[in-house]
Amino acid sequence: MPLPDFPWETTRLTLRPFRPDDPDDLDDLHAYRSRPDVHRYLYTEPADRADSEANLRKKSRWTVVAENEPLVLAAEWRATGRVVGEVNLVLRSREHRQGEIGYVFHPDFHGRGFATEASRVMLAVAFDSLGLHRVCGRLDARNTASARVLERLGMRREAHLRENEWVKGEWTDEVVYAMLAREWAARRDPAEAPRQAEAP
């Protein structure tokens, strides 16, 4: 499925594939993936350095959209040139044109709107480039900060699943947000579309 050429630019961020041989990418990825607070509501556990190295190599290969394989992009803050988080888009069903978005950002950069800014671009790609019909976001019901991101994107809260998963030794609730293509079309701003970075 066609994608705009990388990298993509938003107002403040450059969204691009992770660079497996870039020590700065490794340092920046490890800086947030090693933190217990980042993994509080995720399925994963804090990473050691070796885990982050393997994760970086894996993420750098996820640059196409294939069914149930995530497109994962580093979110680089252009003001500093450093990666402050990541966004992903997963094609859940080609037949039913269903997708899912996700994001993880370093807690030091929470509250600045980076996750919302980057995720808007992923919605634009999902609906405008890939022609998806519905995109969802799933999260632990206790993760209210993440829920606010999805609400700012205009996604609708569709479900609250009670104790539907056993995660890290406890039953957890899951909340599902979603948006349809026609809802995106009604609210989309052409300025939110991914812009290809200008050649140096």
Rank of each mutant, 00 (worst) to 15 (best):
F6T: 13
P7F: 10
W8L: 09
E9F: 00
T10I: 06
T10G: 00
T10L: 02
T11K: 10
R12M: 10
R12G: 05
T14S: 15
L15V: 09
L15Y: 08
R19D: 13
R19H: 10
R19M: 08
P20R: 04
P20S: 02
P20E: 06
P20M: 01
D22A: 07
D22N: 07
P23Y: 06
D25M: 13
L26C: 07
L26A: 10
D27R: 14
L29W: 04
H30N: 12
A31T: 11
S34R: 09
R35A: 06
P36K: 02
D37L: 07
V38S: 12
V38P: 11
H39L: 01
Y41D: 08
L42V: 00
L42D: 00
L42G: 01
Y43E: 14
Y43P: 14
E45I: 01
E45H: 01
R49D: 05
R49E: 07
A50H: 12
S52K: 13
E53S: 12
L56K: 04
R57C: 12
K58I: 05
K59D: 07
K59G: 04
R61L: 14
W62N: 14
W62E: 14
T63F: 05
T63A: 12
V65Y: 05
V65N: 04
A66V: 14
A66S: 11
N68C: 00
L71M: 10
V72I: 15
L73E: 03
A75D: 05
A75K: 08
E76H: 09
R78V: 07
A79Q: 15
T80R: 11
T80S: 15
G81A: 04
G81H: 04
R82V: 06
V83K: 05
V84A: 00
G85N: 06
G85M: 10
E86Y: 00
V87P: 04
L89R: 10
R92L: 15
S93T: 10
S93P: 11
S93A: 12
R94L: 15
E95N: 11
E95S: 13
R97N: 09
R97G: 09
Q98W: 11
G99I: 03
G99P: 05
E100T: 09
Y103A: 15
V104N: 05
V104S: 13
H106W: 02
H106V: 02
P107N: 08
D108L: 09
R112Y: 09
G113M: 08
F114V: 03
F114G: 03
A115G: 10
A115E: 10
A115V: 10
E117A: 12
R120T: 03
R120Q: 01
V121H: 03
M122I: 02
L123K: 02
L123Q: 02
L123V: 04
A124P: 00
V125D: 03
D128G: 08
S129H: 14
G131K: 06
H133N: 15
